[in-house]
């Protein structure tokens, strides 16, 4: 571990990045992941300008057109109020991506400082932080999120709040273990003896060392967060209508199985591909950035 740590600290970031990209491009599954992620991001960015019926995500209702099978006018058919499903899944990419990124970053923003604090401070403070984290880690995430959203009321913001609340502990664990392991490293000892301030040690040594596993975890978590929000949507506790959230769409489409089976297909495929993309990318990044932690 000490060798890797010193190496990563020593190598200039730009060269490391180039090396990483090169390694990434050698793996088929990583490239597939990268491609899927880029595709989703692009869809999210340009979605409103390319969809055939932009009005159909704002609550336009054309009941005469409801539940049409796929056709030239509606490639993926229409839903129960006559909205174009293709339009809604594409705009749905925006919501899912934003929510996935939002949850992950918020969770990291809470978890990482707490973890580093626990790792560096040690003693009673560490004990308190880690016990509190363990409490949340021992909580069944989805059940707790369901309870939270049910209590707060459904809606995309509440779903995000609930998921952030069950998501941050993982980051405390990660940051704490990194901070803890680095604290014992000889070069940190050396820096401390040399009179470097705590903040400097943190900035120069702890953060860069935690970065690789953090990036890997966040990449995976964006995918999982997208899935979690969709799950809440499926249970009926996600986005409010007419917001085109994928999970909520499946939840409604479910009532129209099996006769209108195509309705449920598109949102499911989109969730799958988005989550697959982030997971494959995360996997690939881990192989490069953090090869030793390749566990489960």
């Amino acid at each position: 571990m000490s060798a890797t740590a010193e190496e990563t600290v020593a190598a200039p970031p730009r060269r490391r990045l180039r090396l990483a990209l090169w390694l990434l491009s050698r793996s088929f599954s990583s490239m597939l992941g990268l491609f899927l992620v880029i595709a989703i991001v692009v869809l999210a960015l340009i979605g409103p300008w390319i969809v055939p019926y932009p009005d159909h995500v704002a609550g336009a209702v054309s009941l005469a057109n409801k539940l049409q099978p796929p056709s030239a006018a509606h490639w993926l058919g229409t839903d129960e109020v006559g909205n174009d499903i293709l339009t809604r899944v594409i705009i749905g990419a925006r919501i899912s991506l934003l929510v996935g990124i939002g949850i992950t970053f918020a969770a990291a923003a809470i978890g990482v400082p707490l973890g580093i604090l626990a790792g560096l401070a040690g003693g009673r403070l560490r004990e308190a932080i880690m016990r509190f984290t363990d409490l949340f880690l021992s909580v069944p995430g989805l059940v707790l999120a369901i309870a939270l959203v049910a209590a707060l009321g459904p809606g995309i913001v509440n779903a995000m709040i609930a998921l952030i609340l069950v998501w941050w502990p993982g980051y405390v664990r990660l940051a704490e273990s990194k901070a803890l392991s680095i604290r014992e490293e000889p070069f940190i000892e050396a820096a401390r003896v040399a009179g470097a301030s705590r903040a400097r040690i943190l900035r120069r040594h702890v953060l860069p060392n935690s970065l690789s596993p953090l990036i890997v975890k966040m990449s995976m978590d964006i995918g999982q967060a997208i899935l979690a929000v969709a799950s809440l949507g499926f249970i009926g506790l996600g986005a409010k209508p007419p917001t085109p959230e994928w999970g909520a769409m499946i939840s409604i489409a479910r009532g129209y199985l099996p006769d209108w089976w195509w309705y449920a297909m598109a949102p499911g495929v989109f969730i799958y591909l988005a989550v697959l993309g982030f997971n494959l990318l995360g996997d690939g990044l881990r192989d490069i950035l953090d090869p030793r932690s390749n566990r489960g």
């Binding site: 599954s29 995918g223 999982q224 899935l227 969709a230 799950s231 499926f234 999970g247 499946i250 479910r254 199985l257 449920a264 949102p267 499911g268 969730i271 799958y272 989550v275 697959l276 997971n279 494959l280 996997d283």
Partner: peptide, 13 residues
């Protein structure tokens, strides 16, 4: 990875 990425509710359906 698909095992983790497939939405269980959708796959179940």
């Amino acid at each position: 990875v698909s095992g983790i990425a497939l939405p269980p509710f959708w796959f179940g359906l």
